[in-house]
């Protein structure tokens, strides 16, 4: 039994190990570690979004809401309650899971209704947290500052661990019975119920997992940045990037979001962000092109040739 489990997980363990090595040693070869940190953040977000969209078909357009919630939970606990950073970071995913539970009823909606309602929910979080009336509690539009715990090396190392962790979670979704159940639900929820799959509970579990991943990413992002405005962690652009990166690589796979985020984020920086409109134009065209010609992502070029993609 153990051996078959290992066999199933092997590809995931190898992928995680490669990622740990690459991002562990990259700073010694390439000195822009904030770019590397952002790349890891987007790998995590693209993968976290994939856990929900790729395996259940629910596309969380407001995914950034969980990221921002995690970032703010960590920052505020350090600022207001002076909690040790490790504890404050642990609170990030907890806070985003609480938000996910509150938003749980959205899962009763189908497809696009879910996506747009989730988008609205993330905007509500943004408007509330960034509101001038909330200045005493959240810092409002003036943002938060936790430079007393600033530690770029430790936060970088923690993000490497999160990349590894989320790769293993995605492996579990891809290779376990649990993941097979999710796939069945995505195909047909009624038939899935009639296969004894607890559809509502499993969908909620995937939703919470996905939210926790984004919340933890937000917490580490807050630690790494240490000073930020609400816009930095709630901008819709973060959701959009995560969606595009995941789609580009191929959702429903483990490697897709990693490859998509790695390649496109590198491209994004190569083009340069001095002219954001050009990038917006390029990824707009990319999205349209992907949906029309490659809806399963670039990895489907391999799948079509009969190569099994992990």
């Amino acid at each position: 039994m153990r051996e078959t489990w290992f066999k199933r997980a092997r590809a995931g363990v190898i992928t995680a190990a490669v990622l740990a090595l690459v991002f562990g040693f990259a700073p010694t070869l390439y000195n822009n570690s904030s770019l590397l940190f952002m790349m890891m953040t987007y790998i995590v977000l693209a993968q976290g979004l994939n856990l929900l969209y790729g395996f259940t078909g629910y596309l969380p357009f407001g995914y950034v809401g969980f990221f921002g919630t995690g970032a703010y939970a960590t920052a505020l606990l350090v600022m207001k309650l002076h909690l040790p950073i490790a504890l404050a970071i642990a609170a990030g995913p907890v806070a985003s899971m609480v938000v996910a539970v509150v938003l749980g009823p959205l899962l009763r909606l189908s497809g696009a209704y879910f996506s747009i309602a989730n988008l609205a929910a993330s905007q509500i979080l943004f408007i509330v947290i960034g509101n001038p009336n909330m200045q005493d509690i959240t810092g409002g539009p003036y943002g938060v500052k936790i430079d007393q715990v600033y530690n770029p090396t430790a936060s970088y190392a923690a993000m490497v661990m999160l990349v590894v962790g989320v790769t293993l979670i995605a492996t579990f979704f891809r290779r376990s019975r649990f993941g097979q159940g999710l796939k069945a639900m995505a195909d047909d929820p009624v038939s899935a119920e009639m296969s004894a799959i607890p559809v509502v509970r499993m969908r909620l579990l995937a939703w919470l997992t996905s939210a926790a991943v984004a919340g933890l990413a937000g917490a580490l992002y807050a630690w790494n940045l240490s000073v930020f405005y609400p816009d930095a962690v709630f901008t819709l652009e973060i959701s959009v990037f995560a969606i595009v990166f995941a789609l580009f690589g191929g959702v429903g796979t483990v490697l897709g979001p990693i490859i998509g985020a790695g390649l496109l984020y590198a491209l994004y920086n190569a083009i340069g962000i001095s002219e954001p409109q050009y990038f917006q134009l390029i990824y707009g065209v990319l999205i349209v092109g992907l949906v029309m010609f490659l809806p399963e992502g670039i990895l489907s070029l391999l799948t079509r040739r009969g190569i099994n993609v992990f």
Binding site: R177, Q180, G181, K183, A184, A186, D187, D188, V190, S191, A192, M194, S195, A196, I197
Partner: peptide, 28 residues
């Protein structure tokens, strides 16, 4: 208790065997 559907609702992204396996697994 189980049923069949007037319009069959198979898991179309899976193989024949997986369709049956998944039901067997989750029902225990």
């Amino acid at each position: 208790i189980n049923r069949s559907f007037q319009v069959p609702k198979c898991f179309i992204s899976m193989s024949v065997r997986e369709n049956i396996e998944v039901a067997a697994h989750f029902s225990g």
